[in-house]
Every structure is written in structure tokens, then in C-alpha cells.
Amino acid sequence: MSLRRPYRRSMAGWWRKNPYFVEYMIHEGTALCVAAYALILLAGLLALARGEAAWDQWLTLLRSTPSLLLHGLLLLGFLYHSWTWFHIMPRTLPPIRLGGERLSAATISNAGLIAALLASVLVWGLAMRLAS
């Protein structure tokens, strides 16, 4: 008879045991902000399809204080999500070589962040033009 009795430890609460995992859960959690904003936009689209009255009502709702607060929170979530997204990007891309040298992780992350910033400015400018 074997006297071996390997002990399996529980995984309960695993993500609270290491600050790295806590941060992981937070940055994955901010994806919910992205999903929430997609739902807000979808509601707007449905309101538009239902006619002018529904559309105006949706716009009024957007201008309310709770909605502005929610938008502020969602924006913070978006910013953090983008930051961490581009931070992990070098781990997910195949090695990129430029002139024999492997592109550094920092270069990839920074290029992504700059691209996101440019895209945001472009969309902002477009929205401002349409609004004026």
C-alpha cells in the first residue's frame, strides 16, 4: 500500500492572493465599461429607429447628471482598459524584427497608445464638425 497522499490546495480566492492577479481582474473588469457603452450606443440606435420623439428623449437622458457621471466613470474605465490593453500587446504579437533587431515591448506599447490617441482625436474632431 502506498503511503503517498498528495495534498491539493484550494484555488478559492486565488485572485486576491497576489497584487498582480488583483490588477488583472481590474483591467479585465474594465471590459464591462466597454460593453456598457456599446449598450448605451445601441439604445441610441434603437431610439433613432423609433422616431424623433424617442431620439430626443434619449438625448435628454444623456444630458442628465447621472448620465454625465456614468459617462465620466466609463471614460476612466476606457482609459485604464486601453492603457493595459496596449501594455499586454507585446506579449500577444509575434516578434517583429526591424533591420535584424527585435522591436522592444515598450516601442510596441507606445505605438499602440499613440495610435489610440490619434484615433480618439480624429473621432473627436469629426464629432465637433458634425455638431457645429
Partner: peptide, 26 residues
């Protein structure tokens, strides 16, 4: 793999296993 990435952080030989796994998803 859900791209936690901690494997590559702790690797004492800088192997970057997270990269190997994620390239193969593509």
C-alpha cells in the same frame, strides 16, 4: 490561456512563454 501574462513575469530565464502561447492562438 486568458493572457494573464504572469508566467512571463516570473520566468527566471526570460523565455516569455505568454508570447509563445498567444502567438499560437493566432
Amino acid at each position: 490561456c486568458t493572457a494573464v501574462g504572469y508566467c512571463s513575469e516570473v520566468c527566471p530565464k526570460d523565455v516569455d512563454p505568454a508570447n509563445a502561447v498567444n502567438i499560437n492562438k493566432t
